[in-house]
Amino acid sequence: MKFLGVFAALTMLVAGTAQAAESVTVTDVTGREVTVEVPVQKVILGEGRLIYGLATLDSEDPFERVVGWRDDLKKADPQGYGLYAAKYPRIDDIPTFGGIKDGTFNIEQAISLNPDVVIMNLEAKGATEEGGFDEKLAAVGIPLVYIDFREAPIKNTETSMKILGQLTGKEDRAAEFIKFRSDHINEVEKRLREANPEKPDVFIERAAGYSEECCMSFGNENFGKMVEMAGGVNIAAPIIPGTFGTINPEQVIASNPDQFVGTGGDWEAYAPGMGWVPVGPGADMTEAKRKLDGLMERPAFTGIDATKNGNIHVVWHQFYNSPYQFVVIEQMAKWFHPDLFADIDPEATFKELHDRFLPLDYKPGYFISSSDTATN
């Protein structure tokens, strides 16, 4: 009888678990309708940096659902990877993949992990379809969902977070994050709308110092759009038709921007010994300041107003590929319009984000300016 009682209890537990699963139709950022059994238990991330979004929902353990992921986080954000690895050492054992676009993604390995869903960043869609990976996954009943924090993050971040909420069964948590994000963006936009200040010309350099060539930048989306939302004029917007592109040094000189904002990170794995500025969580700010000063010694920048007036800044590059963009919008607004945003504290905003939504303690180091007195 005792055995039968235990068996009955186990049967009820299994039945309850089965009932908890629900088949839902998710509309991804491309408009595709995808049927998924939720909450998903086994997830493959087509890009490792998608963990930035997932971590805001699975705050106790962002890796509890991840059975495979692309190998980019360790190279693109070694500081962040190190913090996560210190708290969740098993992440070093999660199977990794190459990229879809560079042809090193192993579809057979992905299928063998039997995921409930594969989540891809939007930029991989063309290569995914060209390689027939979408058809191969569909043939074995594995759903593929696209989200986006990079191509059009201002347009797609809210939708992407809602999708992650649907997939994980944490819609309320996603809604809480979305409200936190939108409240901060709305406050910046409200002040700018009411004050209508003169807007500085801004040059935003993507991955400043990553190579000897100049200059990668942004068009009307991603950091280019964030500059506009922060009350600046993106000088590259009329030149670059899409999200990403380049402008030549002569165009920078001719535009003579009032403000310079570069993106930086620790890219020793990608571009060893180059001039990138290693900002990020817990960054060595003395070294970051030294390399920031070096950026302005390049011929295109020595004579521009931004350099003459000390309006030289670098921000963490991964704001461009995460749902945390509202923090850097605040920071740029404070740089562009210091009087209007004197009481805004982007560091406090990012710390609150960590305290409320992320499993890691906040470590400063994401922003630096030429006027800063850099000490660790």
Rank of each mutant, 00 (worst) to 15 (best):
G209S: 06
A138S: 06
R193S: 14
I204R: 04
F149L: 15
S182E: 08
L137Q: 05
Y210E: 09
F218I: 05
R206S: 13
A152G: 04
G169C: 08
F218P: 03
D201A: 14
G219Q: 01
L164M: 07
I240A: 02
P249C: 01
E205F: 01
A195V: 11
I235F: 00
I204C: 13
I178S: 04
V140K: 02
A195M: 03
G245N: 00
Y146V: 12
Q251L: 07
A236N: 01
L164E: 02
E205C: 05
G232R: 01
N220A: 12
D201P: 07
S211Q: 13
G219A: 03
L167C: 12
R206T: 12
K162Q: 15
P143G: 12
M229I: 14
L167S: 10
F203H: 07
F223K: 07
N234M: 04
R193Y: 10
I239H: 08
K199P: 05
Y146F: 09
G224A: 14
T243C: 00
G165L: 05
G219E: 03
I154G: 10
V145F: 00
P249F: 01
A138D: 15
S182A: 14
E213I: 13
K225W: 06
P200E: 02
I142K: 10
A254V: 12
L137I: 08
E205T: 02
M229T: 08
E189L: 14
A207E: 11
E158D: 14
A207R: 09
E212H: 08
H184Q: 11
N220R: 13
E187W: 07
G141Q: 08
E213P: 09
R206M: 09
L144W: 01
Y210N: 08
G231P: 00
L137A: 07
S182Q: 15
P143C: 03
F177E: 00
S182D: 15
G231C: 00
G165N: 13
G242M: 03
K199D: 01
V140I: 02
R173S: 06
A207F: 05
